[in-house]
Design a protein around this nucleic acid. Structure first.
Length: 419
RNA sequence: GGGGGAAUGUCCCGAGCGGCAAAGGGGGCGGACUGUAAAUCCGCUGGCUAAGCCUUCGCAGGUUCGAGUCCUGCUUCCCCCA
C-alpha cells in the first residue's frame, strides 16, 4: 500500500493524510475515482443521539470523497441498530426501542450537513436509512436469496464472532445476523444507487469484505472496501472518550468552546497526525506546523482546534472559541462567552454558600467534592484561591456587570451572572 | 433436569477471621513541574444543613448488641454432567 501511487485525487488525499488502513483493491478503486465514479458509503449506528469524535474520521472520509468529485452516501443504520453490531464488543448491546432509534437518527443527521453537501445533483451527497429495506424483509426470501451465500463455518471464523466464542462470551442469534444485514446493505446500495465502495473503521473490515463477497455472489458490479486505522492518542487512549464524557459533535451536547478545548489539549505527538485527519488545511501548511518544536507547538494546536471547530460549528463559532480561550488563558481576563450560569440577587441575599455555588455551576458534582478540591487548592473565585469552606457569595464578589468567575484547575471556568 | 461457583464502593478490575465508609489497582480529579502537552512526583476519589448525621457490598427476609461477612428464599451470570 505504501508503494502504491494513486492517480486519483481521492485516494491520493486519503493516502497522504493517513486515512487508509486497508483497501481491498487500490488499483481498481483508483481507476474508478479517477473518473469521479466512486460512489461510496459509510454506515452510522443510531445508538446515541449524537455522533462523537470517534466517528469523525469516517465523516472526514466521506467529505473528501465528495470534495474529490465522487459521490458520498451517509447510511443511517435505522435498521441495523435494531440488531446491534457485535464487532469489538464484549457484551451484547442494549436493545434500543424504535422510537429511540428514530430520535437518534435525527440528532446524528444534523452533523452531516456540516461536512457534506446534500442535494439532488449527481455530485451531491445523499443520506438513506437502511430501515427502508431491512424492516420489510421476508424471512424465507431472505434465507433463500441471501442466507444461502453465507457459510456458517466462515462466519464463525470472523473476528467479531470468534473473539466472543473464544472468551466464552455470549453471542445471541440476533447479533450473529448483523454481518449478514450489513453485507446485504452493500448489495442493496449497489443495485439501487450504483454504490461501489464501502468505507469504515478497521473493525468493520470483516463486515465490509463480506459485503463485497455477497455482491459478487448476487451478481452486482465489483465492490471495494477502504478502512481507516483505529485512531488513538499517542498515549493509547481511544479518541474522544474522556471521563468527563464523550466529545459529542452536536452543539447542544458539546458547545463549540468545549470542542475547541478538546482539540487544543491534543498531545504534542498527535498534532501532525490530527491536522491531517481532522482539518482540511493544505499539506504544505500542515508540514510547516508540524515542524514547530517545544512550546511553539502550541500555535499548531491552536490552529488545529480552530480549524477542526470551524469544520463542525462554522468559522465564526471557532474564532469566538479561540478568542475566549485567548482571553481566559493568555490574558487572564474575563471572557464573556465562557459557560454562564444565571443567579438571582435574591439567592445571594439569602446567603448562597460558595460550596453550593460551585455545585450549581456544575463544576463539581457535590459539596463534598468541593470541600476536597478546596483542600487541595483547586477552586478559585475570581482567580483567588478559595480556602474557607464556609464562605458565602457576597455582592462584592460580582463585578460591575454582575459577573463572578468560578474556576477549578487551570481549565474549567464558569461565570455566574446576576440577573 | 442434576451438581458446583459467582455477584463488593452505581466508571472498571478486585481483596475482604461477625465491629466496615470497606485493602489494592486502573481510570478520573486537583496540586507541583511545564507550554492549557507528554512523562514524573504528591494528594484526593459515598452523600449531607458536616467534631455530627444519613445511605452503600445482586434482591427479600432471618440469626445477632452488631451482617459485605452466618442462615433461608429469590434473581441474574458462569462451569461441569444429562
Amino acid at each position: 500500500m505504501t508503494d502504491f501511487a494513486p492517480k486519483s485525487d481521492f485516494l491520493r488525499v486519503l493516502h497522504e493524510r493517513g486515512f487508509i488502513h486497508q483497501c481491498s483493491d487500490m488499483a481498481g478503486l483508483d481507476a474508478l475515482a479517477v473518473k469521479g465514479e466512486a460512489i461510496g458509503y459509510i454506515g452510522f449506528d443510531c445508538t446515541a443521539p449524537s455522533l462523537h469524535v470517534g466517528s469523525l474520521v469516517q465523516i472526514m472520509m466521506l467529505h473528501w470523497l465528495q470534495q474529490t468529485g465522487n459521490k458520498a452516501i451517509a447510511l443511517m443504520g435505522g435498521g441495523t441498530t435494531m440488531v446491534g453490531d457485535p464487532s469489538g464488543r464484549d457484551e451484547t448491546r442494549r436493545i434500543l426501542t424504535v422510537e429511540d432509534i428514530q430520535a437518534n437518527k435525527r440528532g446524528i443527521f444534523s452533523v452531516f450537513s456540516r461536512f457534506l453537501n446534500f442535494g439532488e445533483g449527481p455530485r451531491d451527497a445523499i443520506t438513506i436509512d437502511n430501515a427502508e429495506w431491512l424492516t420489510t424483509l421476508n424471512w424465507i426470501e431472505m434465507l433463500r436469496d441471501v442466507g444461502r451465500h453465507f457459510s456458517v463455518n466462515r462466519m464463525l471464523s470472523m473476528d467479531s464472532v470468534r473473539l466472543r466464542l473464544e472468551r466464552d462470551q455470549e453471542m445471541s442469534f440476533i447479533e450473529f445476523n448483523y454481518m449478514i444485514l450489513q453485507a446485504y446493505d452493500f448489495t442493496v446500495l449497489a443495485r439501487r444507487l450504483g454504490c461501489n465502495l464501502q468505507m469504515g473503521g478497521s473493525d468493520q473490515w470483516g463486515n465490509i469484505v463480506n459485503g463485497i463477497d455477497l455482491g459478487r455472489r448476487m451478481g452486482t458490479h465489483q465492490l471495494y472496501a477502504v478502512t481507516t486505522p483505529l485512531i488513538t492518542t499517542a498515549s493509547g487512549a481511544k479518541m474522544g472518550k474522556t471521563a468527563a464524557g464523550a466529545i459529542w459533535l452536536n452543539a447542544d451536547q458539546m458547545p463549540p468552546y468545549g470542542y475547541w478545548q478538546f482539540w487544543r489539549n491534543t498531545e504534542d505527538a498527535d498534532v501532525a497526525r490530527f491536522l491531517k485527519l481532522f482539518t482540511t488545511l493544505p499539506m504544505g501548511e500542515i508540514a510547516r506546523l508540524a515542524a514547530l518544536q517545544g512550546a511553539e507547538i502550541n500555535a499548531a494546536k491552536i490552529t488545529l482546534a480552530t480549524e477542526a471547530t470551524a469544520l463542525l460549528h462554522g468559522r465564526e463559532a471557532a474564532e469566538a472559541a479561540a478568542e475566549t480561550a485567548r482571553k481566559t488563558f493568555e490574558e487572564g481576563t474575563l471572557a464573556a462567552d465562557l459557560p454562564t450560569i444565571e443567579l438571582s440577587g435574591a439567592e445571594i441575599a439569602a446567603g448562597l454558600g460558595l460550596l453550593s455555588a460551585f455545585v450549581k455551576a456544575g463544576i463539581v458534582p457535590s459539596t463534598g467534592e468541593a470541600r476536597r478540591q478546596i483542600k487541595s487548592g483547586g477552586l478559585r473565585l475570581n482567580d483567588a484561591p478559595v480556602s474557607d469552606e464556609r464562605a458565602a457569595l457576597a455582592a462584592g464578589d460580582f463585578n460591575a456587570d454582575g459577573i463572578a468567575k468560578l474556576s477549578m484547575g487551570k481549565k474549567k471556568h464558569v461565570l455566574l451572572k446576576l440577573v
